[in-house]
Every structure is written in structure tokens, then in C-alpha cells.
């Protein structure tokens, strides 16, 4: 499988990365080089093989469903580019 310029632009949109025409052209070549490299996986017979879900067989750790943390609003917004009264500020999304 290989990608064309249109696909690259669509993927960039999905990934929320602005790309110029030149970027998209360059990326098309690079992505096709990588996709060409991973193509060889198709020759592996995987019939009856489960996809890996966990590299070490272990039971998912669970904890009591209780509040163990919190009250740190100021810490959480401390690194944000724009905040007001412990809220993150973003450009208007609803008219």
C-alpha cells in the first residue's frame, strides 16, 4: 500500500498538524518509504495467532473506587498558556 498527496493531507488533518504543500509532498515520499519497509509483515503467516495485548501476562491491577487524589486545580493549570480562575482558556468554540 502506498499513500498519495491527498491521503497525506487527510492524515495530517486527522493528526491536527498543519502542513504546507511542500511539507505534504516531502512527507508523501517519506511515508511511502516507511510503508514500503513495513510491507514485509504481510509475508508472515499469522493464522491462529492472537494479537498481543499485554507483553507480560498479568492481571490488571484494580483499586478501590474511592477518591485518592485531588484538590490540585492550581497545580493542574500551572503550566497552561492561558487560564482564568483555574480554567483553561481556549478560542471560542460555540457561537
Amino acid at each position: 500500500m502506498s499513500v498519495d498527496l491527498q491521503t497525506v493531507k487527510r492524515v495530517a488533518r486527522l493528526a491536527r498538524i498543519a502542513v504546507s504543500e511542500e511539507d505534504a509532498k516531502r512527507m508523501t515520499g517519506e511515508l511511502n518509504a516507511i510503508l514500503g519497509f513495513v510491507e514485509q509483515l504481510n509475508e508472515v503467516d499469522v493464522s491462529g495467532v492472537e494479537p498481543m495485548t499485554s507483553v507480560t501476562p498479568m492481571e490488571m491491577k484494580k483499586r478501590q473506587d474511592v477518591v485518592t487524589d485531588g484538590g490540585k486545580a492550581a497545580d493542574i493549570v500551572a503550566n497552561a498558556p492561558a487560564t482564568e480562575e483555574n480554567f483553561f482558556l481556549v478560542p471560542k468554540v460555540v457561537e
Partner: peptide, 17 residues
């Protein structure tokens, strides 16, 4: 939004991109 660099945009998606 939450940390690091922000480049302003005409709307929120433009800002993300």
C-alpha cells in the same frame, strides 16, 4: 491548551494545527 507552546489560530482547530 494544557501546557507548553500555543500558536494562536482563527479558531480552536486552527490553533491545534
Amino acid at each position: 491548551v494544557r501546557y507548553g507552546l500555543r500558536v494562536p489560530g482563527k479558531d480552536i482547530v486552527d490553533m491545534y494545527e
